[in-house]
């Protein structure tokens, strides 16, 4: 059996990343992958890079990484609401300013996708969707028919994505699977403070997905964020598990599950 740890957006949450990497070491893994968006939202963006490099985490670019690497003025998050964009810009300006030139160059060196072939399974890792860096694939707005199309387009048996911030997993025809691995960066709008990553266990005739909760020191992260004068709205999300910003992009079901 081969076991892969799939990490979603880290959003500068180095404390959650540290805890997740310790858990992965205890559980054992044959490979650790991160699907992009290393910076954003959280404090001290440069702190995630040494952790990722020292543990050999294989990363791909997310929209945030692509923007930081290319010196773009916008995070390409894909928001359209003025309030959402206000917070996105604030967060991007902070992250841009506090990410070193070396780390930006390292981001630029990362591939946009990764293809793996494990135990006979053809796997595509990407950030938003196989066809677009910043496409939002929410559970409640991704029809089976559409996911089957994306799997055909990707020429893969398993596709793993992140970008939305909320995990899900769908089994499709002929044993194929689609996974949104969730994110390590912030809790997933359910009133709980932990974050998650996905563990993919592969055998020749079976592929199993488990979402692993990561209980980290979220109060210390909130203190870091306050120290860096990040918006109180962001800190509230870390402390309560409810999203307070970037809400207008949510489809009905995901929005109705949250508090705001």
């Amino acid at each position: 059996m081969t076991r892969l740890a799939l990490l979603g957006g880290i959003y500068s949450n180095y404390r959650a990343l540290e805890t997740a990497l310790r858990q992965i070491e205890q559980r054992g893994a044959d490979g650790i992958y991160c699907l992009g968006d290393l910076g954003a939202f959280g404090p001290y963006p440069d702190r995630v890079y040494p952790l990722l490099r020292s543990r050999g985490v294989e990363c791909i670019q997310g929209n945030y990484d692509n923007s930081l690497a290319g010196g773009l003025a916008d995070c390409q998050c894909g928001y359209t609401d003025p309030r959402d964009n206000y917070f996105a810009r604030l967060s991007y300006a902070y992250t841009f300013e506090n990410t070193s030139v070396e780390n930006k160059a390292w981001l630029a060196s990362l591939p946009m996708t990764r293809r793996l072939e494990v135990e006979g399974w053809r796997i595509l890792l990407c950030h938003g969707s196989p066809r677009k860096l910043n496409e939002f694939l929410w559970e409640s707005t991704s029809s089976d028919a559409f996911l089957e199309y994306l799997l055909r387009l990707a020429d893969a048996d398993i596709v793993a994505v992140t970008h939305t911030g909320i995990k899900w997993h769908r089994r499709l025809s002929a044993g194929r699977q689609f996974i949104n691995v969730g994110v390590l960066g912030r809790p997933e709008n359910n009133g709980l403070t932990h974050v998650v990553y996905a563990e993919l266990s592969l055998e020749r005739d079976a592929a199993k997905v488990e979402f692993v909760p990561v209980e980290y020191d979220f109060r210390a992260l909130a203190a870091d964020m306050a120290e860096e004068k990040l918006p109180p709205e962001f800190i509230e999300t870390i402390l309560t598990g409810w999203w307070t910003t970037c809400l207008e992009i949510l489809p009905h079901k995901e929005r109705a599950h949250g508090r705001f």
Binding site: G71, L72, A73, D74, T80, D81, P82, F96, E248, P251
Partner: peptide, 15 residues
Amino acid sequence: NVSALIEGPAELKRP
């Protein structure tokens, strides 16, 4: 369903 880009397409420039 998501709001239109009411501010118009964002111009991508170096900060």
